[in-house]
């Protein structure tokens, strides 16, 4: 196999993913609390569903906060070159995409409040037939790439 793309995504991405995992966990716990409060008013609601729910949320939370961000980080690689964009990710299922630069239609930068706090952005690349996302780059890197791709795309021929 031709060598995997070398560029890594920004290390702070781990923090973002962890925070997101924590927020999700928080919302899930709130739901459980809401259910328990609801039981005070509606007698016939059983107590038992909260135990498997807590267990499930706990395991998912542990995965999402501690393990997955680390692994995702390790197995994400990309390369943006003159003629093409190369993306590879995944541990259990490895996915790879090779996108000829001439086929790129547009590039979007996107970031939410948490991403912005860490000065990160995601970059999504759209061709006429597919869509690919690089999840976390330094905002400045993303902007540079955005610019770079825009110029490269402009110079391509006007065919579909």
């Amino acid at each position: 196999m031709i060598e995997r793309p070398q560029e890594r995504i920004h290390p702070d991405a781990k923090k973002v993913w962890r925070l997101n995992g924590m927020i999700t966990l928080g919302v899930e716990l709130l739901l459980v609390v809401g259910y328990v409060i609801g039981r005070l008013f509606v007698d016939w609601l059983p107590l038992w569903p909260i135990f498997p729910a807590l267990g499930l949320f706990g395991v998912l939370g542990l995965l999402n906060i501690v393990i997955v961000p680390h692994i995702r980080m390790m197995y994400w690689g990309y390369a943006i070159k003159e003629e093409e964009i190369d993306i590879q990710f995944g541990l259990i299922v490895i996915r790879r995409a090779l996108i000829p630069m001439r086929r790129v239609q547009h590039v979007d930068i996107e970031y939410g409040p948490i991403m912005r706090h860490f000065h990160l952005a995601s970059l999504s690349i759209t061709t006429a037939g597919s869509n690919h996302t690089i999840p976390a780059l330094d905002i400045d890197t993303a902007r540079t790439l955005h610019q770079q791709i825009a110029t490269l795309v402009q110079s391509r021929d006007e065919d579909v």
Partner: peptide, 29 residues
């Protein structure tokens, strides 16, 4: 060649064991 929008591959755990992968091309239609 110029009509391929992207080439993507996918390799599951079992496929890796057998050194195989699934290949897809994205074409405009």
């Amino acid at each position: 060649k110029s009509h391929i929008q992207a080439l993507s591959t996918r390799q599951s755990l079992m496929q890796r064991w057998r050194r195989l992968s699934t290949v897809s091309i994205h074409v405009l239609a």
